[in-house]
Amino acid sequence: MEKFITHDGIAVPLMRSNVNTDDIVPARFLKSISRSGFGRHLFGNWRYLEDGTTPDPDFPLNAPRYQGASVLVAGENFGCGSSREHAPWSLREFGFRCVVAPGFADIFHNNCFNSSILPVSLETAEVEAIAEGLADGASPTLHIDLPAQTVTTADGRTYRFRIDPFKKNSLMEGLDNIGWTLSHRDQVHAYEERRRQEAPWLFPRSA
């Protein structure tokens, strides 16, 4: 897993609320069996004009100001809807390392950590202030510091965010959850032995 410690980058505001996973990557693009190839389908219904290939000049990600963006600043309840991890995969492949929003849907939030994307939750007013600064300020950049749990704007305003310490550590170390859980395999077996007595119907000989 790719580590996340600090990050400096261009940030693009997409101040819509309830942006869902179908908006992030429409279902018709989910048919790849690999983890790559989704970046070009990011916001597939919004990024392009009718013909499906010409960038829509009105869509923020296409604005010259935000080219090369690696931080997305979004509205309330970002990533609601489906469990598809293709959504963070497409964000990551497009170049995003961090999404800042007032709130995230639960499954999407988990999926971000597994795709090396840092989801940052701030107060609505803070996100709005950041978005305004990106649109109007001299430089649309943000500095994200995971150890310090802060987001700093180009004009020096700093916002502190909260994050689960275990997830923070996993991201900073680039830890592999599966490896971690497997290291506790004995406990899993002990649980299974106990549970088999309590609820034997959960352990039939076949499915």
Binding site: S82, S83, P88, N111, N114, F166, N177, I178, T181, L182
Partner: peptide, 23 residues
């Protein structure tokens, strides 16, 4: 019963467990 992402699908296949903060 809950929905999970593909990395978590792999986690459950490999370990029969999930790492979850209690909702």
């Amino acid at each position: 019963a809950m929905g999970i992402g593909t990395s978590e699908v792999e986690h459950v296949l490999a370990t029969q467990c999930l790492l979850q903060q209690k909702p």
